[in-house]
Write a protein that binds this DNA or RNA. Structure first.
Length: 571
RNA sequence: UGGGGGAUCGUCUAAUGGCAGGACGGCAGACUCUGACUCUGUCUAUCAAGGUUCGAAUCCUUGUCCCCCAGCCA
């Protein structure tokens, strides 16, 4: 079990649980569970549930939380998803110890419970087609009507159900349904289906079964079997709670957990629906479940989000019952907050502009000391090579600087970070295009390290790399996957993909990074100073082909001010 | 127009009859060898209308708006 987080704020679920515990309900036991279906990858919405379930259990003496795969639909599920889910949960820092379960482990028990219901005359085999069942169900405002097969004898039902199990019937010919009330105001209570025939192999039980139990039958019983006390799920299951309780009551089980619903997570500029994420993967809108633009845990991890930042994000958003869309900026803040402490600083020039220091000897170079973290000496220092020809960022030079532009300009002096003060004395342009291709500068040899003996100040410090010493790298700049805060809301009946952001990925092939990054280990986090936090891509990066993913940009009041100015000017 | 839920700063979220608070965000400033970080100040909220009460986000009444439900998905 993970360590309790003492700073954990309370929420309505924790309040209920604390009260139950104080009242010695369930003999003072606390058992929760995280029940993913292995039909896709986990996303950050699942992280919310994981931290809620495992978190609340860890906060109480003796509390436990199970990891349980809800694997009742073999046509959609796969072992590869089971493995990916386990990896993600582990990555989040959650330890389920040996408490890993599968609903499919309960298939025999579930089958016997189904027989019990039949014997109690509370379930029957229906031979209507799927379409007919739908038609008989009625509508939201009209009651349904009983199936003609509803009054089969217990013996006939038993025989038919056994034959379903034995694989004697084709898919769709029969189902086992409860006998509740076709006129119920709650659609879920109109004789919901318990079992359907599926003639596909299951990733864990192989060909043993030809019938599979439905969620409403499986979930409550699995909870009960595992001794779960508090079954936490999302809001859309509120209407299912009467059925959850009905099944357990009818079967007279010993342990009857309490289902409590909370609002699922939504984040602006992305989608958190496994179905939709599946579509993005299948249609090739992204490179896969682990595309760094995806809100999946695999994607976020590859993008450079840390488990800790995701946890603090989940702590911050809280747990409540109202529908909400959390600002993506809050997630980004959580990333910066963690990375700021831990990511070593390095210099990288994303869009290089050649800079020649005329008074620096051609055949000379030297090494300068640079701290790995400006506010944390314990992270040490590294050497950075300096020479006559450097690269700086194109954005750090402006031939006709606007007001408040502090960076390099003709005749202006700035500091090269941890190096020297330089002054721009000339600009070389391409004769054809007029594009600036090189800057001519002089340096002040007395300013080695970056400060002037005479105490003079400069308004800006720019980062740089030495041209011959620097390394080429590919840099992937990621932006929001969608252009609108609520991607599922579209105009003119268009598909949600019409809101996909065409600029969600910009790849820079000619970035130059300092040589200390030579053997950067995949998955390592860095701050490219004055740019952003980056993560060495765990899939594509190697010693001879460095690839960096931008996790999240540094806050940038300068460019923000520029954008505001442009916007105002555009009006 | 059935049933089940929900409405508090721009966004999340506290306050369970007693000062509407926190975080993100925005704005302004200080600091700065990252226009970062940090720090300071500041901005903005109880869905509406009635009622009960010394006192209401909270209790009552009547409305309004939003979400979910008609899978042999979970």
């Amino acid at each position: 079990m993970t360590t309790p987080d003492s700073s954990q704020s309370s929420d309505f679920i924790r309040t209920i649980i604390s009260e139950d515990l104080r009242a010695k309900k369930n003999d003072g036991r606390l058992v929760t569970r995280f029940p993913p279906e292995p039909n896709g990858y986990l996303h950050i919405g699942h992280a919310k549930s994981i931290f809620l379930n495992f978190g609340v259990a860890s906060e109480h003496q003796g509390g436990i939380c199970n990891l349980r795969f809800d694997d009742t639909n073999p046509s959609k599920e796969d072992t590869k998803y089971v493995e990916a889910i386990k990896e993600d949960v582990k990555w989040l820092g959650v330890d389920w110890n040996d408490r890993i379960f599968y609903a499919s482990d309960y298939f025999d028990t579930l089958y016997n419970y189904a027989i019990l219901l039949i014997k109690k005359s509370k379930a029957y085999v229906d031979s209507l087609s799927a379409e007919e069942i739908r038609a008989y169900r009625g509508t939201l405002t009209e009651p349904g009507k009983n199936s003609p097969w509803r009054d089969r004898s217990i013996e006939e039902n038993l025989t038919l159900f056994e034959r379903m199990r034995a694989g004697e019937f084709d898919e769709g010919t029969h189902v086992l349904r409860t006998k509740i009330d076709m006129a119920s105001l709650n659609m879920n209570m109109r004789d919901p289906t318990l079992y359907r025939i599926r003639k596909v192999p299951h990733h864990r039980t192989g060909n043993k079964w030809h019938i599979y139990p439905m969620y409403d039958f499986t979930h409550c019983l699995s909870d009960s079997i595992e001794g779960v006390t508090h079954s936490l799920c999302t809001l859309e299951f509120q209407d299912h709670r009467p059925l959850y309780d009905w099944v357990l009551d009818e079967l007279g089980v010993e342990n009857h957990p309490q289902q409590i619903e909370f609002a699922r997570l939504n984040i602006s500029y992305t989608v958190l629906s496994k179905r939709v994420l599946h579509e993005l993967v299948d249609r090739g809108n992204v490179s896969g479940w682990d595309d760094p633009r995806m809100p999946t845990l695999h994607g976020l991890r590859r993008r450079g989000y840390t488990a800790k930042s995701i946890r603090s994000f989940c702590d911050r958003i809280g747990v409540a019952k109202r529908d909400a869309v959390v600002d993506m900026a809050l997630l980004e803040h959580s990333a910066r907050e963690d990375l700021n402490h831990h990511a070593p600083r390095v210099m990288a020039v994303l869009r290089p502009l050649r800079l020649v220091i005329e008074n620096y000897p051609e055949d000379q170079d030297e090494e300068l000391d640079a701290p790995n973290h400006p506010n944390d000496e314990t992270m040490g220092i590294r050497k950075i090579p300096f020479s006559r020809i450097l690269y700086i960022e194109q954005d750090d030079f402006c031939e006709t600087p606007p007001k408040k532009f502090f960076r390099l300009a003709p005749g202006r002096e700035v500091r090269l970070r941890y190096a020297y003060l330089i002054t721009c004395i000339g600009v070389v342009k391409d004769e054809q295009s007029g594009k600036i291709i090189e800057l001519r500068c002089t340096y002040d040899p007395t300013t080695r390290g970056g400060s002037a003996p005479d105490g003079r100040k400069v308004k800006a410090t720019v980062h740089w790399v030495s041209s011959i010493h620097s390394l080429q790298a590919e840099v992937r700049l990621y932006d929001h996957l969608f252009t609108t805060p609520t991607p599922k809301i579209t105009n003119d009946g268009k598909d949600f993909t019409s809101n996909l952001n065409p600029r969600s990925l910009e790849t820079l092939q000619d970035a130059r990074v300092e040589p200390s990054l030579k053997s950067a280990v995949p998955g390592t986090h860095y701050q490219f100073e004055r740019h952003a936090y980056f993560c060495v891509d765990r899939v594509d990066s190697s010693d001879n082909a460095l690839v960096f993913n931008r996790t999240v940009a540094l806050r940038d009041t300068w460019s923000k001010a520029q954008q505001t100015k442009t916007k105002i000017a555009g009006k």
